[in-house]
Design a protein around this nucleic acid. Structure first.
Lengths: 144, 144
DNA sequence: CCTAGTCGTAACAGCTAAGGTTGCAACAGT
DNA sequence: ACTGTTGCAACCTTAGCTGTTACGACTAGG
């Protein structure tokens, strides 16, 4: 499917900010998060920008600027993050509309659409069951 | 996620072959299927080749050659098709391994892996609930 | 044995998305 | 005024999907 790492990196960033704030700090910088995720600060800023639009984080500018959580990790689910960073559907239809004169060509899109909707609903339900606090707990539970 | 249409096209092809066989024909050609799906015959042959490797269809060569189902549509699920045409995982990890000296960088991959495994298990379960006979029934149930 | 129709597959081009990088303006605290 | 950071645009590289052409391999039928 050509999977991407956007959900993973976004969860990483949120867990990092959450832990940093638990340690008493006010804001985290994109550079710190990028160092932990081993990527470029701009990639982090782009992702956090989408999370900000979704109301999950806030940013300050100027000296001593950076990112902070807009809500508790307990109230954020992976579904919130998924919806913030993954706009499109999971499965695509035909690029060119199939032959409407053919019985299969005519009925295939509504049929698959109905099936895909059910599957995506289930996926969203699963994502909504995991909070970012769960993620951070699992992160800290890793051995060594 | 940059979704693709492989599962959709594969289901289209299988439904088409299944209906064609119900109408008494022996084999279907990639050209016929491509016309219905409004794409190129080579695209269909490539996809059906993967389905053949998975044991879902058979192909004959020579004059009067073409494709036929290797099993009944009732015994084929969307999971069989999905696994035949979508090898990789749904969500990717970091491209570069995160900073192992950081607590979050160290624990994030096992944490997300565990979560993703549960989600993919659910996705597969949902896909396994839909047979290709269900798909064809839905196709034929489309209005007009 | 020859022909015709179809598969099997390689090769290539176009497109899109993700990810990485650089550069710089905007901003705000000191 | 200075400094550190965000916000954002621009560009590049890579990878995967899709479409297309080309051609050899194969086989039923004459």
């Amino acid at each position: 499917m050509s999977a991407n790492s956007r959900l993973t990196i976004a969860a990483h960033a949120l867990a990092w900010i959450g832990l940093y704030q638990r340690q008493g700090h006010e804001v985290a910088t994109s550079e710190q998060i990028a160092a932990s995720a081993n990527t470029n600060p701009v990639v982090i800023r782009r992702l956090l920008g989408e999370l900000r639009r979704a109301g999950l984080v806030e940013s300050r500018r100027g000296v001593g600027a950076g990112w902070s959580l807009a809500r508790e990790l307990e109230s954020m689910t992976l579904l919130d993050v998924y919806e913030a960073v993954e706009p499109g559907p999971l499965f695509a239809m035909h690029r060119a509309t199939p032959d409407q004169g053919c019985v299969v060509g005519h009925g295939i899109q509504p049929a698959m659409q109905g099936i895909y909707e059910g599957i995506e609903r289930t996926l969203r339900h699963e994502l909504a069951r995991v909070t970012l606090a769960d993620v951070l707990r699992d992160v800290l539970a890793a051995p060594r």
